[in-house]
């Protein structure tokens, strides 16, 4: 009976694993299958500036730039802020308050992105317009700021867990060696938790790259790279905002629909490359310890 139960358990675990792998492969295959007509027709013209479905022109460079710019802005704001907040909640805030603060932060993660988008339109966008004397506050920076707020809970919660789960003896040993409290955080705890912190940032990066609704409402939705390119207080377009706006308008099976699948495929490749890249970097870091 036990052997039978073991076999069932093993089969269940294996089946779940294979199912996950199959779903991932299926997503890849379907996206690639639907992208193929556009990829074979447009070819390397995909990496140009002009997007005009009426003329079968599907250049994605501006969207790629917008995606990377908005994500970079979000990470630049959220990563330091999130890690410092997590250090505060995990190492400085008394335990009896930590749970309340952490619950409040986790609550932020549950807010639907459309609500963030609405807050962005009502609050952040006018503020940016006034602050920088712009005709419209819907810019790459606005989308980046809002995205930063959206990914903060992920970074804070996971980094806080990573730090809090480090055994107490590392803190005591460091204290016993004469390190100041700040040095214990900087030289003992953060290096020990760096892999998990990187994981938190990676998850946040995934969310930032994939976020559609809030970004679509705030990014300005103009298919161009700002001039000069570092003028990020200009409207732009991200891959997700483009998909969000145009998928409904494109006819199923058309070249336009195929091109939209192609940019989705590109986004997937981007996320996977960044994920694998970060993991390889972290493993390399661990090997050299």
């Amino acid at each position: 009976m036990l052997v039978f139960q073991n076999k069932i358990g093993k089969g269940y675990v294996l089946a779940s694993t294979y199912l996950c792998i199959a779903v991932t492969l299926l997503i890849f295959l379907i996206l690639f299958w639907n992208s193929y007509p556009a990829l074979s027709t447009v070819g390397f013209d995909l990496f140009t500036m002009t997007w005009n479905p009426a003329k079968d022109q599907f250049g994605v460079l501006s969207m790629l730039f917008g995606t990377l710019a908005v994500t970079a802005i979000a990470l630049l704001i959220a990563v330091p802020l999130g890690i410092l907040t997590a250090i505060f909640t995990s190492e400085i805030l008394p335990n009896r308050y930590r749970l309340y603060v952490k619950s409040a932060i986790e609550l932020l993660a549950g807010i639907p992105s459309i609500i963030y988008g609405l807050i962005g339109i009502a609050l952040v966008s006018p503020w940016i317009a006034t602050l920088f004397e712009l005709s419209s506050g819907r810019t790459l920076v606005t989308a980046g700021i809002l995205l930063a707020v959206m990914i903060l809970p992920t970074i804070i919660t996971l980094t806080d867990d990573a730090l809090h789960n480090i055994p107490q003896q590392y803190r005591e040993t460091s204290k016993g060696l004469g390190l100041y409290p700040f040095e214990i955080i900087q030289k003992t705890l953060v290096p020990i938790a760096k892999r998990n912190i990187a994981g938190a940032v990676l998850l946040a990066l995934g969310r930032a790259l994939g976020e559609t609704m809030a970004v679509m409402l705030l990014v300005g939705s103009i298919d161009k790279i700002p001039e000069p390119f570092y003028n990020l207080l200009s409207p732009g377009q991200t891959i997700t905002s483009k998909l969000g706006r145009e998928v409904g308008e494109s006819a199923f099976g058309s070249l336009h629909f195929s091109a939209l699948n192609a940019i989705g495929f590109l986004l997937l490749l981007l996320v996977i490359t960044l994920t694998i890249g970060t993991q390889v970097y972290m493993r390399k870091g661990i090997r050299t310890v």
Partner: peptide, 12 residues
């Protein structure tokens, strides 16, 4: 200096 009950070696 202090030495603790179980060895605490840093991941270094």
């Amino acid at each position: 200096g202090m030495v603790f009950q179980s060895p605490c070696v840093f991941p270094k």
